[in-house]
């Protein structure tokens, strides 16, 4: 260990600690709702069962290195999303501590929320959710080389943030969300000219217990607040 340099190797990769999220400059069409001033929440907070879901795709025949794949992933992240999921990174892009706003539709319901870039290095980046987001946890996007082939992976570790979301996930929200990350991986593959590879998927329940002490998270529920915001639109001046 080099004790002459007290700065850890990962220091630049992590977001700075902050009590509340702050949203930077964004395009005019982005709805900034349910993110500003919220705290981030991880897999140990939230209400529902904790799931780890892994989506993996082999970029067969693609010459791009893991570093190049992740660089493209960061740069084109909003474009790789399905049409109902609009992502608005800040001008700094996918960088530690930056907030990415999400204007999405979940089973036909508007959900205005966002994520914070918790960690980013050359071969991975991790997004962490705020209070009110459907999930409490994080999702990591990464790439590595295996037997001469670059593998791209999305891995989430999260639980539903409140009882309403837990019911929503059981009634199809979970499958809808899985479809989103499959779409993102297939878009990434297509960007690199790979079109014939399947997405391998596995999921594991890490914690079956519901965290009833977190049931009050409903007060932050971004779907309810987004719906109320949409219903109130005709009565607002702007």
């Amino acid at each position: 260990m080099d004790t002459s340099d007290p700065t850890p190797r990962d220091a630049a990769n992590w977001a700075r600690k902050s009590e509340a999220l702050k949203v930077g400059d964004l395009p005019a069409e982005a709805v900034n709702l349910n993110v500003e001033g919220r705290r981030v929440v991880g897999p140990l907070q939230g209400f529902g069962q904790l799931w780890q879901k892994t989506y993996r795709l082999r970029l067969e025949g693609c010459a791009a290195t893991p570093e190049e794949v992740v660089a493209a992933w960061k740069e084109h992240f909003p474009e790789f999303q399905p049409p109902q999921n609009r992502f608005f990174p800040s001008v700094a892009g996918v960088a530690p501590g930056e907030v990415v706003l999400i204007n999405a539709s979940l089973q036909g319901m508007p959900v205005q929320t966002g994520v914070m870039v918790l960690y980013a290095d050359e071969v991975s980046f991790t997004l962490m959710t705020p209070e009110g987001h459907p999930e409490s946890g994080w999702v990591t996007f990464s790439a590595w080389e295996e037997q001469g082939c670059t593998i791209a992976q999305v891995q989430s570790m999260a639980r539903a943030n409140d009882p309403i979301y837990e019911i929503g996930f059981a009634l199809g929200g979970s499958a809808a969300q899985e479809a989103i990350w499959r779409h993102v991986l297939l878009s990434l593959a297509a960007h690199h000219g790979v079109t014939e590879q399947p997405v391998q998927f596995e999921k594991q329940c890490v914690d079956r217990q519901l965290q009833w002490d977190q049931a009050g998270n409903i007060r932050h529920n971004a779907a309810i607040r987004s719906l109320l915001y949409a219903l109130g639109r005709p009565f607002r001046r702007n």
Binding site: M1, P8, R9, D10, N13, G42, P43, L44, L118, Y119, D121, S124, T126, W138, T140, S142, Q155, M157, V206
Partner: peptide
């Protein structure tokens, strides 16, 4: 000496 987000996931 070093920890990435995968390491934090492992601790969870």
């Amino acid at each position: 000496e070093y920890m990435n987000s995968g390491g934090i996931g492992l601790l969870v």
